[in-house]
Design a protein around this nucleic acid. Structure first.
Lengths: 160, 160
DNA sequence: ACACTGGCTTAGAGGTTGCTAAGTCAGCTA
DNA sequence: TAGCTGACTTAGCAACCTCTAAGCCAGTGT
């Protein structure tokens, strides 16, 4: 009955794992910065090209107070930066743009989109991220430093 | 001053983006399933090989009620499955194992770890995921269907 | 001078997430 | 049969997340 299900379990120097804790887990620290759903939504729209406050509000479908709070927090954390700009006949406004630190979260965002598209969303998404020029859909894949594609059964945990 | 920062902005048929909403965004739906920090921590430990309740509690450093709630929710959502097992001289217990659906979140988890390690965690992580045999560290990378490595400036949004 | 608009902020309420402390319960072990 | 242990559950509480509704303020446009 459970033949068709996959179980993954990493091997290596860390088994048995008792005795070390994950208090320095980088994922846990990442989730301290991008803690909630609304932060991911704001980042998504930043990737899609939003820069102005009302664009973020409309496209994330968050309320104004929440959007404002997330924009401030993500700016304070260095994932976005505020940049003043001025259109003719308009007063000065601020654009929010992804920094290198923020843009580096793209693989995580793509990986979540990919999973939601495959496993959760009924009928699939309306929108797809493609490789410009080539046109093929983009996914987040596990690769090693020698550029091998890495399967789930080829993983090993090691102390650094 | 801002020459060194990177701004990414996707191009393609969806610019200007106003007029379509992201209510069918697969990432948002993924975050409805794996909504909170504790769910990610539980999944992390499942990837690291935990199967028993007390292992999850000890290794995630969550409280028992929260760990129990997350294990139940992730099981109900089909990311984990409960499997009865019995060690000699012990009563029957249940192991929690990743299903295919749960294991498919590994790229997202790796991407978050990678980001936290690079941008947040002071001094870096103690633990590294490596390609078994080859030994090189594993990362989540953007690739297209033609197996090209995809840079952040080579992305395009398209309707499906 | 006055209204309007974009970009927020404030106030208040309801739901969710996490904690600690204590309790429950099934099935061994003595 | 009485106690122990692993795996939870329950109760109560503080903090956080999100919402609606309303207010504020700088700078145009009339």
């Amino acid at each position: 009955m459970s033949e068709t299900t996959t179980t993954i379990q990493m091997t290596g120097a860390l088994e048995p794992r008792d005795g070390w804790t994950a208090d320095r887990c980088p994922m846990a620290h990442a989730l301290d910065v991008v803690r909630n759903r609304s932060a991911f939504l704001v980042l998504r729209e930043a990737f899609y090209g939003a820069t102005r406050f009302d664009e973020f509000v409309a496209r994330t479908e968050l309320s104004e107070p929440v959007a404002a709070a997330r924009l401030r927090e993500l700016t304070d954390a260095g994932l976005l930066e505020r940049e003043p700009y001025r259109e003719p006949g308009q007063r000065t406004r601020h654009a929010y743009r992804l920094t290198e630190k923020g843009a580096d979260l793209l693989p995580a965002v793509v990986a979540l989109m990919q999973w939601g598209d495959k496993w959760v969303l009924p009928g699939g998404a309306r929108v797809e991220i493609r490789h410009e020029g080539c046109g093929a859909p983009v996914t987040a894949e596990l690769r090693c430093g020698h550029d091998h594609a890495v399967g789930r059964d080829e993983l090993e945990l090691a102390r650094r």
